[in-house]
Simulated scan of single mutants.
Amino acid sequence: MPAKLIKTVSTIAALLSVSAMVSAQQDFSKVEITHQPVAGSIFMLQGSGGNIALLVGEQGNLMVDDQYEPLAPKIKAAIAKLSQQPVRYVLNTHWHFDHTGGNAEFNTGEALLIAQDNVRSRMLSGGEIKAFNAKIPPAKKEALPELTFKERMQLYFAGEDIEALAAPNAHTDGDAVVFFKSSNVVHMGDLYFKGVFPFVDLSSGGSVPGVLAAVEAALERMDDKTKVIPGHGSLSNKAELSEYRDMLKASIAAVAPLKKAGKSLQDVQAAKPLAQLNEHYGGGFIKPDLWLQFVYQSL
C-alpha cells in the first residue's frame, strides 16, 4: 500500500472511530485508561477516543460516553479502582463510535443508556460520514440508547443535579452538553476539541455555526470556577473554552464574506483567510484546509 494511502487510512480511522477501521489500525492492548479527579465525586477518564466523565455514588455510578468496545474491560477495571458499585447510567453526548462503542458492554441490565433522540436514530440505521467516504454499520441492539430526549433531560443521582441539553445541528444533529450543577462541571462532548480545529460531521446534520451557538450557550452558564471536560483533550476551563469560541467566531467571520461574494471553495482556500489561526489550531486531525471546508460548507 502506498505510504500516502496508509497515512490517509490511519487518519480516518483515528478521527472517525469506525469499528472496522479502528480495529485494523489500533492496538488496544497498548491503551492505558487513566483517571483524574475533576470536582466533587466526578472523575475524567482518558484512554483512546472521547473523554469519559464518571460520577461515583454510593448506590452506583454514572458515565458520560464510553469510548471503544474493545476498551470496555479496561474501563471497567479503571472504574473498579474508584468504586465497587455498578454503572447505573450511561449518557452519550452523540452517536460517534469513539463515544458509544462501549454501550453494549455496559448495558448489562444494571445500566440505562441515555441520549438525544437522533443518537438512537443514527445508531439504529447506521450512516455515512461523507467527508471521508466512511460508511458506519447499524449498531447492535444492545448498544442502542433506551431512554431518549428531544431538548432537555434532568436526572438527580448520587447527590448531583444533572442536566443534559441538546445542541441542535452542531457537531452532529444529536449532541448533548451535560451539566453537573452541584459540582460545577460541564462535559462538552465533541462540541469542544481542546486546542485544535474540531471535526464537524456535516453529513450527520452538523454545522460550524451550530457548534458556535452551542459553545456560547454553555459559556453563559459557566463561571470562572467551572471545570470543563472536552470531547478530546485535557481537562479545561471557561477561559480556554472562551478562546476556542473566539476561534469559531473568527473562522466564520473570515469565510462568510468570501462565500457571500460568490467565491468557490478552491478560491477561498487559495486566499488563506484563516492563516492567523492555522498555526495554533491546525495541529490536530483536522488540518487547516479541511477546517476551512467545514466552515465554507456550513454557511
Rank of each mutant, 00 (worst) to 15 (best):
T93Q: 06
V90A: 10
N103R: 03
L5I: 15
T11V: 11
F106G: 08
L112V: 15
L45M: 08
M123W: 01
G127F: 02
S121V: 14
A13F: 01
S19K: 13
P137N: 07
S41V: 02
P137R: 07
G109W: 07
L15G: 11
S29E: 14
G126R: 12
R122A: 11
F43K: 00
I6V: 15
A104E: 09
V38A: 00
S19V: 11
F106D: 10
V119I: 14
V119T: 15
E32W: 01
F106S: 11
E128A: 14
V22G: 10
Q36T: 13
P137F: 07
F43N: 00
L91C: 09
G109A: 12
N51T: 06
L71I: 09
I33G: 01
N118G: 12
L112W: 05
A143N: 05
I6E: 08
T93F: 02
T8C: 07
S41C: 08
L54W: 04
N107L: 05
G102R: 05
A115W: 02
H96C: 08
K74C: 09
A72M: 09
P37V: 00
K81G: 02
D65A: 13
H35T: 10
G57L: 11
L15S: 11
M123C: 03
A134G: 08
A20K: 14
G47F: 02
G60K: 09
A78R: 07
L55R: 03
K74L: 08
F132Q: 06
E105M: 10
G102Q: 07
N51G: 05
Q116V: 13
T8L: 15
L82Y: 07
P86Q: 11
F28H: 06
A72G: 03
A72P: 02
L54Y: 04
I75P: 01
G60P: 09
Y68N: 09
S83D: 05
Q67L: 03
P37G: 05
E32H: 12
L82H: 08
S121T: 14
F43D: 00
D98V: 00
I79F: 03
Q25Y: 08
G49S: 10
A134R: 09
K7S: 13
I75R: 03
S23W: 06
K140H: 13
L16Q: 12
G101S: 06
S125Y: 01
Q116A: 14
F43M: 01
K81M: 04
S125N: 14
Q116F: 07
A104M: 04
N103C: 04
V18Q: 15
K130M: 10
S19R: 14
M21R: 03
L54S: 04
A53H: 01
P86G: 07
P73D: 11
F106C: 09
V119H: 02
M44S: 01
Y68L: 02
F97L: 12
A72T: 15
K4Y: 11
